[in-house]
Each structure stands twice: as structure tokens, then as C-alpha cells.
Design a protein around this nucleic acid. Structure first.
Lengths: 332, 332
DNA sequence: GGGAAAAATGTAAGCGTTTACATAAAAATG
DNA sequence: CATTTTTATGTAAACGCTTACATTTTTCCC
């Protein structure tokens, strides 16, 4: 087993209290003894038992991060952002995947309630009533990451999906002269996806372009669904001249299909996406898309959480909306 | 504050011991009381204090994962693999980035010694004497992820870099007829990188091709370094007909330069890589590369760690080498 | 119904720290 | 040098739980 302060105390002929104080560099212990103890601790290869300390201090110095998935092009950037800030503030990071299909409620509960983290950053693709209730009831500090800030009582960080979708659609119309723009939707349950659709529709409307339902097809953010959607759109009698995929992955799927059909982007059909994942830079021609600063989302969420954890009296929940930016490629 | 078993005990008019037993579903408590307590716990919204339990049980049910970086094309897959296995075995996952530039020793120590994890999976791009000593001394179960299994006493999981590099080089020579193959190295300090270089050289040697030092240029696994290396190689008087980049990212850099120079892959020059990152599938033409099953590395490492943690007497260290596979694209 | 065996519950110690409070030692003061 | 003040150390409780052991209650059997 590990060395404890008790053993150090014996060796040093002092009480455990003194050892504890010395190790915590308390000013009320004599320099000489402090040194003695420090040296002993070093020699004996002592390292404090984090768990015992936590039990009395009621502070773990750990923040939890729950994501739908841990891999992919997007989530790792969020992790990085959170990690960056936590590290700077001497917090450890606990990452858990809710594994999408897993029982999320279970996951969240298990994670949060057991007092193993001081605060939680939670990203959920969609929020059921059940989870909403749970979140409201939870007592530890929590920050939500999602586009749709729909829980007033809980602080959140999200990107402006509407604005992003609106601006790229508007760009296609105003700057590039496209009038026949199709849209590949994300999952119905995904709040970000819904807002992107809204932005697309709003831009059309503001430009007096009639919405053609045939040109709005389903997708689920996967590359495969992008392929299927593109092949449907390009098989229509009345084809669109541009396709706006609700995320880059689906846009990449479009590229494949367009290529397989022997067509050219942007000459035969324009394709734009959303997210600005690293891959988008490598597609040829380079994809025009909406930049979502995933690492910044992570950083902002961590900062907000630390702020909440730092303040005694629970401050008013904040809702941070992060703006997106247009990345102009050669795909339109 | 949270509800404790003490409060439940009072409400139920039993001792805390009984509550504890009931909650842990011990067979030595009457069904009736068990039910009573369970219901009370539910009502009072009780959840066990993980920290207190850990203190007495000396088991955190957490495994730690330390990676050089948390984002990128490769590491998230490892995380996913580890997460998968840990979840299945009811372990939580603690992810920490050593942040490359950060003082790694510090990071490792802080992580491991504080008895906050039951075991650690550690991936290091390179191992200094200092770290090697540290690892040997450490008392908690540990599994290393690296290509170069150079610490006998510590179990490890790695891929067969040599075999991978050898086989793709051999493929270029035997199946594709290339004789003038250049190599872009990884960082000198990186064990994987060194082994890939070895494999490349061995394949040339076995095919009686003289090694041309001018065709072996430096790189550091980044896309930028791939670009620079490619531009150097393609500016030589005597150009190579194929370039083997020690990882896919650098191969992607080659693509950019080749494209910018107005050349064509594979007609003007062939390019192959190593890693089979998702991006490689999207390069056009599709990259020929060596598949490295990152998620499997993660899974194997987690399984090995669990095995070690499960066995009382420390079993003999294992060294698992995961084989790679050739992915045939259109780039040669 | 009395006693033994089995089952259920209680008592209390312990996990490794921190820290309020009590006490002892050292320094300062007149 | 006695007394007060300051400084350093010790004692013991607490954090919330588990569990060995002791005790009580129930069940069973003749």
C-alpha cells in the first residue's frame, strides 16, 4: 500500500496534524519541521490520497464532460477546448461518452450524482422531457452545450445555427446567384439541425424564393445519408442547382455521388456544408461551409462552468451564443 | 448537501449498517426492510457518495488514459476503443492530455499517484530515461501504448510499424514496379517513426535497391512538414517516382504540393502513407496507405489493463503487437 | 416451551485526510 | 523573572461509507 501521513508522522516524531499542515505549507508550522517533513515525504515517495482529501474537502477538482460521442471530426475539438481551460485552472477532466444509443439519463445520473465531479459540461443532441427534468433538479453546477438554449435555468453555450444557415444560404443567392437551392436535413431530433433548416428557409423567404419541399430531403449527419440524399436530389426531373447540406459530412457524401455520376462541382451543381471540419479543406474543390469554432465552444463552456463553480450564490444562468463564419471554398 | 445513509437510517429507524447493506443488496437483510429502505432512498433522492465508498473500498472504478493530444484523426479513435471496453466493464474513463509540450512527467505523476484511478493507459510518443524510471517505479497497473515495446517490465500494446512499412514499400516495388521511392520521416524522437523508416529501408534492401539518402527527408507528422518535404523531393534534379510518407497527414501535404505544381498522382509521382486516417479516403485519388486499427489499440489496451487489474499476483507483462493492413487506393 | 441454530440488526472501528480547539513551548514585555 | 502574547504542536472529531464482530430477534425442532 501507499505511504500515508501517519507513517511520515511516526518517522518525524510529530502528529499527523503537523504533517498535514506542513505538506499544505501552512504558515503555522516551524520552518525547520516543515523542511524535515518535506524531505521525509520526498524520501518515502509519499503522495497524498486524493480520495481522502476529497472526502473532507468536498471538492474533487474534477470537471466532467459528457458528449454524445468521443470520436469524430467535431467532438475531439470540444474536448480539447475544455481540456485547455481545465488544465489552466488545475482541474482534471473526466470525459464520458453517452454513446448516443446508450441510456443517456442513466449515464448522466451515474456521472453527476456521485459527487465525483465538481461540475459538468453536458452536450446532448436533443433533450427529452425526462432529461430536462433531471437537469433542472440536479444540484451541481452544470453547463449545457447545444444550439438551442431551451432550458432557462441552466447556463449554456451554443453556436448560432440559425445565423450560420441563413448567411450561407443568403450568400448562395445574393453573391452567387443560385435560386434553386436544395437542403439536406439533419436528424429530426437534433436541435442544431432544426435551426439550420429554419435559417435556410428564412433566407429563401427573405429573398422571395419559394420553398420547394421536394428539395428538402432527410439526412442524419452521416456521410452515407449525404450520399443517399444527393442521389435523390440529382435524380429529380427538376434538379436543384445547389445543395446545402446541414453538415460537412453529408456534403462530403454529396461529393462522392456527384463524382460517381460524372458531374462536376460547382459547374453542374454547387455544394455547401456546415461545420468546417478539417476534412472540408481537403475536399476537391474545397468546400464552402460555415465555420463552427468547436474548440471555442469547449473553452467557453469550461470558463462558464468555472465561473459558476467559483461563485457562492448561484448567479443568474448565462446563455452564450457563439457566432459562425462563412468559409469560402470553390464549391459554388 | 446531499442525502447520506445516516439520514435514511433515521427515517427508517434502523442503523446505518443496515441501510448500507440494504443498498448493496446484501442477502443478510430482511426483504421487508430492504424494500422499505430502497423506497426511502428513492424518495429522498439518495445517491451514494462515490468518494466515501472509494476511501474504504480502495477502488475507484476509474481508469486513466493519458494521450499526447486529445484531438486529431488518430487519438479520438483510441479514446473510443478504451471507452468502449471500460464502459462494458463498468469503469469510468479519465482522459488527460499530456499536451505534448507540457511537462509530461509532472502530468503522469499527478495523475497516477493520487489514487484516483485504478489503472492507467499511457501513450507517449517517446520515452525519456526519466519517464522510463518513473514508469518502472509506479505501483498501479499500467499499460503502455507505443510501437516500440522497450520496457520489458510493463505491459504494452502497439502496432507493428516495421511490418507495415515493409509491406507497403514492398508492394510499391514488387506489385507496382517502383524503384525510386522516397521517404518522408516522422519526428526523430518518435519510436513509431523510427520503425517505419527501418521497415522502408529493409524492404529496399531485400529487393536489392540502393538506399538514396537524398530521398530520405525529414518531417514531423504535420501536414505542413509533408508539404515542405514534397516540395523538396519534387525539386530534385533526380526526382523519385514514388513518395512514402511516414503518416497520412504528410501524405496529404504531398497531395497539395503535387497539385500546386500541376502534377498528377499517380502518373507523375505516386504517394503512399501510413495510418489510414479517415481523411485518406477522401483524398483524390484515394490514398494507398497502411491501416492502423486505432480503436482496436484502445480496446486491446483496455482489456489488457483490466486483466492486469483483475489478477492479484502480478502476472507476467504482455506485449501485444497489432498487425497492420494494406489499403489499396489509386495513388500508385 | 426451552434451547439451539439461523437470520437480522446493531456497534464501532477504520479508510486517509483536514481542521477547530486545546495545549504546550517560545518569545516578548514590563 | 513572572506574565502576557505569540507561535508551534497535539488531540480528536469529522467527512460518508463498509464490514468484522457482537448482540438481538426469529425460526425451528424435540
Amino acid at each position: 500500500m501507499s505511504i500515508t501521513i501517519k507513517e511520515i508522522a511516526e518517522k518525524a516524531n510529530v502528529s499527523i496534524a503537523t504533517v498535514s499542515r506542513a505538506l499544505n505549507n501552512s504558515p503555522k508550522v516551524k520552518e525547520a519541521t516543515k523542511e524535515l517533513i518535506m524531505n521525509l515525504a520526498q524520501e518515502m515517495n509519499y503522495s497524498p490520497n486524493f480520495v481522502a482529501r476529497t472526502l473532507v474537502k468536498k471538492k474533487t477538482n474534477v470537471i466532467g464532460l459528457i458528449l454524445p460521442e468521443v470520436a469524430g471530426e467535431f467532438f475531439p475539438e470540444i474536448i480539447r477546448g475544455v481540456d485547455e481551460i481545465s488544465y489552466l485552472n488545475k482541474y482534471h477532466l473526466f470525459v464520458a461518452s453517452s454513446h448516443s444509443e446508450r441510456n443517456t439519463v442513466d449515464s448522466i445520473l451515474g456521472f453527476m450524482s456521485k459527487s465525483m465531479v465538481d461540475g459538468v459540461i453536458l452536450m446532448l443532441p436533443s433533450i427529452s422531457e425526462q432529461i430536462r427534468d433531471l437537469i433542472k433538479r440536479i444540484k451541481i453546477p452544470i453547463v449545457l452545450i447545444n444550439g438551442y438554449n431551451n432550458i432557462e435555468q441552466v447556463s449554456s453555450v451554443g453556436i448560432d445555427n440559425f445565423q450560420g444557415a441563413y448567411s450561407i444560404t443568403n450568400f448562395l443567392i445574393k453573391n452567387k446567384g443560385y435560386n434553386e437551392i436544395a437542403f439536406i436535413k439533419g436528424p429530426e431530433t437534433n436541435a442544431d439541425a432544426r435551426l439550420r433548416l429554419k435559417g435556410y428557409k428564412a433566407a429563401l423567404k427573405d429573398n422571395n424564393i419559394k420553398i420547394n419541399d421536394e428539395w428538402i430531403v432527410e439526412g442524419n449527419f452521416t456521410i452515407k445519408s449525404g450520399e443517399l440524399a444527393a442521389s435523390r436530389l440529382l435524380s429529380l426531373i427538376k434538379k436543384p442547382s445547389a445543395i446545402f447540406a446541414a453538415n460537412d459530412m453529408m456534403a462530403a457524401g454529396c461529393y462522392r455521388v456527384v463524382d460517381a455520376m460524372g458531374l462536376k462541382i460547382p459547374d453542374d451543381v454547387a455544394v455547401v456544408g456546415f461545420d468546417h471540419i478539417p476534412l472540408s479543406e481537403f475536399l476537391s474543390p474545397k468546400l464552402t461551409t460555415v465555420h463552427v469554432p468547436a474548440d471555442e465552444i469547449g473553452r467557453k463552456a469550461a470558463q462558464l462552468l468555472l465561473e459558476i463553480m467559483g461563485s457562492e450564490n448561484n448567479i443568474k444562468p448565462k446563455h452564450i451564443k457563439i457566432s459562425t463564419g462563412l468559409i469560402i471554398g470553390k464549391s459554388c
